[in-house]
């Protein structure tokens, strides 16, 4: 089985010598279908850089990033943008919804950008909203929703049309404990349904929802818990 996301020896240097900052110093990392991987580290450890690179929003200085077997570096700008819209879903701490669009329109937007007919995009959006438990809020605007509801919309947008890789950067940061837990439950359910998820967080309680926890320090992976999980997934004992 190939990894949905594979980072190989990824280095990311910001700025130039002598003031260069090595945000990532040779990180190799994979996320497989059906698993949620948490990346934990203090601020400045490189975890957000790792996520933006994994999602094709930033390019590594060296090393390779493949999503569903496709090397992002080999893609041109338009193909990469298309990949971001069709294969990858993002969830941010700040929700990043467009205030002038309703919940359903926000969720449908990436599909419409991708050339899907508006009618179908809208239908897919409603299905995604149903999946995250808020079909009744489809016509609501973000400002008329609570933080937890907005984050559910953001998750619906991240998973609409069966995207296989979900990247979440501190998705529960702005929410209270119980609402945050519901959001993690949703991410978890999505991964149990077959997506690969990467959750960046500095909170152990949230990382604990993952199958594996990767510890990042100064741009290097220093340790990992539950490391056997990916192995058993890739090489079933029956074979």
């Amino acid at each position: 089985m190939t990894a949905v996301l594979q980072l190989t020896d990824v280095v990311r240097v910001h700025g130039e010598a002598p003031h260069e900052v090595q945000a990532l110093r040779g990180v190799s990392f994979a996320a497989y279908a059906g698993e949620l991987v948490a990346v934990m580290g203090p601020s400045g450890s490189g975890k957000s850089t790792l996520l933006t690179i994994a999602g094709g929003l930033d390019q590594p200085t060296s090393g390779a990033v493949t999503v569903e077997g496709v090397d992002l570096a080999r893609l041109g700008q338009p193909e990469r943008a298309r990949m971001r819209r069709t294969s990858i879903g993002y969830v941010f701490q700040g929700f990043n919804l467009i205030p002038a669009l309703t919940a359903a329109e926000n969720v449908a937007l990436p599909r419409e950008l991708d050339g899907v007919a508006p009618r179908q995009a809208r239908a897919e959006a409603r299905q995604a909203l149903e999946e995250v438990g808020i079909p009744h809020l489809a016509d609501r605007f973000p400002d008329d929703m609570s933080g937890g509801q907005q984050q559910r919309v953001a998750i619906a947008r991240a998973v609409v049309a069966e995207r296989r890789l979900i990247l979440a950067d501190e998705p529960t940061g702005a929410l209270d404990t119980e609402t945050g837990e519901e959001i993690l439950r949703l991410l978890r359910a999505r991964c149990d349904a077959g997506a690969a998820g990467v959750l960046v967080t500095h909170e152990a309680r949230h990382a604990a929802w993952a199958d594996r926890v990767v510890f990042l320090r100064d741009g290097v992976v220093v340790d990992e818990t539950g490391a056997d999980r990916a192995e058993t997934l890739t090489e079933p004992a029956a074979r």
């Binding site: 152990a204 990382a207 604990a208 199958d211 510890f215 818990t225």
Partner: peptide
Amino acid sequence: QRSATMAALQDYT
């Protein structure tokens, strides 16, 4: 210790 505690935390979760 952090890895061990994290693993326990994953079990509880």
